[in-house]
Design a protein around this nucleic acid. Structure first.
Ligand SMILES: [Mn+2]
Ligand SMILES: [Mn+2]
Ligand SMILES: [Mn+2]
Ligand SMILES: [Mn+2]
Lengths: 219, 219
DNA sequence: ATAAAATTTTAGACTAATCTAAATATTAAA
DNA sequence: TTTAATATTTAGATTAGTCTAAAATTTTAT
């Protein structure tokens, strides 16, 4: 009934809706790597299927939103499986999960979730919604909102891009580490950290704005 | 490059080629649940892609045959995963594996195979080819070729059809059991078995011809 | 308030995969 | 060996998803 193509559009619209106030045709086109003409045409079909509320204001209906959360749920569960069970690295799983997220069987998703012992987050620290679409509250903040001198836990990355994750690997940064903010540079948005009381790491704004933390000590 | 649709056609042609001397358009159409016209058209595309040798004689090229074996390999590894790891029953896995078999990542397939500890057979007793496409030799014979009075091991089923597998469940038949042939009826092809020295089971020809055994004691 | 720039939609075309109906070709029977 | 039945291919349509180029609309700047 609902194609892989449509599922990918719905997921893109959901993600864009999380950050942008209003989602535009060109933003969807950019994200999907399609022409605006194709997107415009697709929006008509999404509207006809009851997945978006309006052709002008690109907002998901409840049905569309639920579908998006199901796909994200499957994506993140499969990523977790690939890393935890099949020993993949966190920068290798995204494109495989892009395929696995479209496998249709709610029983499969539930069994996978049970096998993984109901994980709250995927290998990138992103929250995994339950089967009703509810996300666990992780109360994370972007590194840019951190205060110098305070201690935080590195909780998640805002993008799965392979080269970005490799860069973090090279700097020795891993989820769960304790980070103390040594210095924040107003001028260029760069940040200097003390990682696990051992290494000093310097981060550019480009990197820093894709890192999420939570306050407090390691749990 | 190669669509899910084409993969399903190639698999169908491979299976038909195993039993039939020459594969026909109508046989492929029947198996794929498509019209002969669609199949005829698809064969042209398969030929253009170098997957079948000839348009008139429907035979897979080496490339086509290798592709078929890769898909069968993935199908059977996923079925094994679903039953062994996620506690599915043998009659529940086929349609899910039909989707999973199309996920493209040879690394995934190899990691899955390693995780499952290099299984030789899937939950239906079917052999799993290695990554070069070589099938393990299981030396099975159809139950119809068994001799009365002799002892065999129940090794595999010739079809994954849900109602057929449920029927076997109801009769208490499971892979690995020792079967002694009590009686074979020439007239209607029916067979009477002694299962694990305990229960007598009567099988019609319709069921019997879809069961494969190997000679000898349980290993 | 008008012009310029950016965004979005429409028009027309293409490919993959399917269909039905009709035309061919092949195989089997009389 | 001609005819009848069966099998296959072709013709013409349809749907989903994409494109480029052009038209229309909306936003921004002067
Ligand atoms: Mn996807
Ligand atoms: Mn992720
Ligand atoms: Mn399939
Ligand atoms: Mn099987």
């Amino acid at each position: 009934m609902i194609s892989t193509t449509i599922e990918n559009y719905i997921k893109a619209i959901f993600y864009l809706g999380e950050t942008a106030t209003n989602v535009t045709v060109s933003a969807v086109a950019e994200r999907m790597q399609n022409s605006p003409a194709s997107v415009s045409d697709m929006l008509r079909r999404l509207y006809e299927k009851g997945l978006i509320k309006d052709k002008n204001n690109i907002t998901l209906t409840d049905q569309g939103s639920f579908l998006a959360k199901q796909i994200i749920r499957k994506h993140r569960l499969w990523e977790t499986f690939l890393v935890k069970t099949l020993d993949f690295k966190w920068d290798e799983v995204h494109s495989i999960a892009e395929q696995l997220e479209h496998v249709q069987s709610s029983l499969l998703t539930e069994r996978l979730e049970r096998f993984l012992e109901y994980p709250e987050t995927d290998p990138h620290g992103d929250p995994i919604p339950d089967k009703d679409g509810n996300f666990p509250d992780l109360s994370i903040i972007p590194l840019s909102e951190s205060e110098p001198g305070k201690s935080y836990i590195f909780r998640s990355v805002a993008t799965d891009a392979k080269d970005f994750l490799n860069h973090l690997d090279n700097k020795g940064l891993q989820l769960g580490q304790r980070w103390v903010i040594i210095e924040k540079e107003e001028f260029d948005g760069s940040v200097k950290l003390l990682v696990d009381d051992k290494n000093e790491v310097y981060l550019s704004e480009k990197v820093a704005k894709n890192l999420n933390i939570c306050s407090g000590e390691l749990d």
